[in-house]
């Protein structure tokens, strides 16, 4: 209820009245919005940018989608490291197209995140200042050509396992972006598998190179699904909102079940002595992963964490004058053109 006005603040009274009725209206709207949101989630429908959504849902999605976008952007670096040295022109072309796709994925994902009301520049800034996270796997080096194969097969493979269910995420722009991303990622995974297959069946040295890459990327790839369910506090809420459809451990199991026969077909071994088919569960059992390493890398202690961020910052800094020039040119053009012309 509004305060009774006095002579001294009479000019303020109408404002207070307006404030109060606005607040009432907002509360009513929020209540109706929440009811509608709950209904949409219950019937497994889509939330669209103009729909009312809880503040936490908006925040959590913006974080998840932008982290995903950042991962695409930082992920360009390890693979970009091999473009100039790719061992055949065909492989060079495929790798270039792949890294270019990743820039494209970053673009769709930043656009999807922007529909939640935060500008792209803000997300860039979060990455630049080191406040934003991205997939830890990209803090490992791509040392050999076989790493390009392992990244395609294992890293993109894990990403697809994670992302296919996200095509049904409750937030419309995210789900739709993921449909396109997944199509391209599955092409990337096949390319990675093919690189490893060729190396594995090539010279003895090439085979060793392939095995070494798989040995190094296997553990970090399994950790891409996040910590074990017992240690993943946000998962439950994300599943209640129909963003996440399966738990970290469910997805990890699905991935292991998929890659074991693929590794056999490659003629390569997976570096886990405990890996064995469990008839009773109908799944492969696998050994405990090094979670101390995972959390250390997550905190920025990855082998290449500083290098990746520094590379990103340098590109942003060195490109600042170009972006200023483009903006100045656009302003000048807008001023020169009469409205409606």
């Amino acid at each position: 209820m509004p305060h009774p006005s006095t002579a001294q603040d009479s000019h303020a009274a109408p404002l207070r009245l307006a404030d109060a009725s606005d607040a009432d209206a907002a509360a009513e709207e929020a209540e109706a919005g929440q009811a509608r949101f709950d209904e949409l989630i219950a019937e497994d429908s889509r939330i669209e940018p103009r729909d009312w959504m809880p503040a936490d849902y908006r925040k959590s999605l913006a974080r998840q989608i932008s982290q995903h976008a950042h991962s695409e952007i930082i992920g360009m670096q390890p693979e970009g490291n091999w473009i100039t040295r790719a061992p055949s022109l065909k492989r060079k072309a495929i790798l270039m197209a792949k890294v270019q796709d990743e820039a494209g994925h970053g673009l769709y994902l930043y656009s999807a995140a922007e529909t939640l009301g935060t500008a792209r520049e803000t997300f860039y800034d979060q990455l630049y200042t080191g406040r934003a996270k991205y997939s830890s796997i990209f803090n490992y080096p791509a040392r050999t050509w076989a790493d390009i194969g392992a990244i395609g097969w294992l890293v993109d493979g894990a990403a697809i396992t994670n992302q296919v269910p996200l095509c049904r995420a409750s937030y419309g722009p995210y789900g739709r972006a993921m449909v396109r991303v997944c199509k391209e990622e599955s092409f990337h995974q096949r390319q990675g598998w093919e690189i490893l297959h060729t190396l594995s069946h090539g010279t003895a040295e090439q085979h060793r190179m392939a095995q070494d890459a798989v040995d190094r990327f296997y553990g970090p790839a399994l950790q891409m699904f996040g910590p074990p369910d017992t240690d993943s506090p946000n998962s439950q809420q994300s599943m209640a909102w129909n963003i996440k459809r399966f738990t970290n451990d469910e997805l990890r199991q699905r991935f292991v079940d998929m890659i074991v026969p693929q590794a056999e077909a490659l003629g390569l071994t997976l570096p886990d002595p405990e890996l064995a088919w469990n008839e009773e569960r109908g799944h492969y059992d696998f050994g405990e992963l090094d979670w101390d390493e995972f959390f250390a890398v997550l905190k920025g202690q990855g082998p290449l964490s500083s290098q990746r961020l520094e590379h990103y910052r340098r590109a942003r800094d060195e490109g600042a004058w170009v972006r200023e020039a483009a903006a100045a040119y656009a302003r000048r053009q807008a001023a020169a053109e009469p409205i409606g012309a």
Partner: peptide, 17 residues
């Protein structure tokens, strides 16, 4: 190709690539 991941804007990474 050495520009990829180093361009002034993401759109330019795509264009130069």
């Amino acid at each position: 190709s050495a520009w990829i991941s180093r361009a002034p804007e993401l759109e330019e990474d795509v264009a130069l690539g």
